[in-house]
Design a protein around this nucleic acid. Structure first.
Lengths: 116, 116
DNA sequence: CAACTATATCGATGAATGTCAATCTGTGTG
DNA sequence: CACACAGATTGACATTCATCGATATAGTTG
């Protein structure tokens, strides 16, 4: 479920006024909205902040549960959404799961705004 | 309700691991999430796309209702959310309301991602 | 293998959200 | 002033979502 892949353009009709340029297709809009949906929650933004601020570049779930004051299942749920959106990478080593930023993902997301 | 103003940092506790750097405060996270919430809907992304693509730099509601295949109240509702998020500017001239991108708002939003 | 621990998944629940139909407000026009 | 029109607001409804408790899964250790 890689939401950050590049989506190719498509066409759409224009309206009454003299404007008649191709706008964001419904499908492209849906794809891009998925990434912003993942960012549209305060606790997920804080998760990204913690992972980003980690010197080692990665955090295990045990490090993420306490500072957010959320239950472990809830944190796990948020992490899954961030992974599905292509923003975080998950690597399991032994009993622990380590999360790290996907390189370039934030920059690519910022680029989505410019390409609207 | 200006969600794109600069929010000043705040502190928060650390967890068990050696990491102990200040992370995004709950309040800052809430503020920033508001902007991404506004972007987290396909139809709102398309609205931004249309306004951005307009040669005149602005669009009236009548130009926005048809291409989205949504009712007029729904479009009005989405536009209000974008205005409240600080992304769109609304100007009423006569019977019509014209919407335009707030200069620099998209760039500032992109900057939010870098400053997590 | 049994006990323990870290994490993920499931099911339920209350809150937030997108949409529409109906209505209200304000502006221009006969 | 009466009517028409653009747009906003309201209320209702269905859907999505964030959260939690309970449970399942998988790796570790005795």
């Amino acid at each position: 479920m890689n939401s950050l892949q590049t989506v190719e353009p498509a066409l759409d009709a224009a309206c009454c006024a003299p404007s008649a340029r191709p706008i964001l297709s419904a499908e492209d809009a849906r794809q891009k909205a998925l990434v912003f949906k993942a960012l549209a929650d305060p606790n997920r933004l804080r998760l990204l902040s913690i992972v980003k601020g980690e010197a080692s570049g990665e955090s295990c779930v045990c490090d993420l549960t306490e500072p957010l004051d959320l239950g472990q299942p809830t944190v796990s749920h948020h992490l899954k959404i961030l992974v599905d959106a292509g923003l975080l990478h998950r690597e399991k080593r032994g009993t622990w799961a380590y999360y790290s930023l996907v390189p370039g993902a934030m920059e690519q997301t910022a680029g989505l705004l410019a390409s609207l």
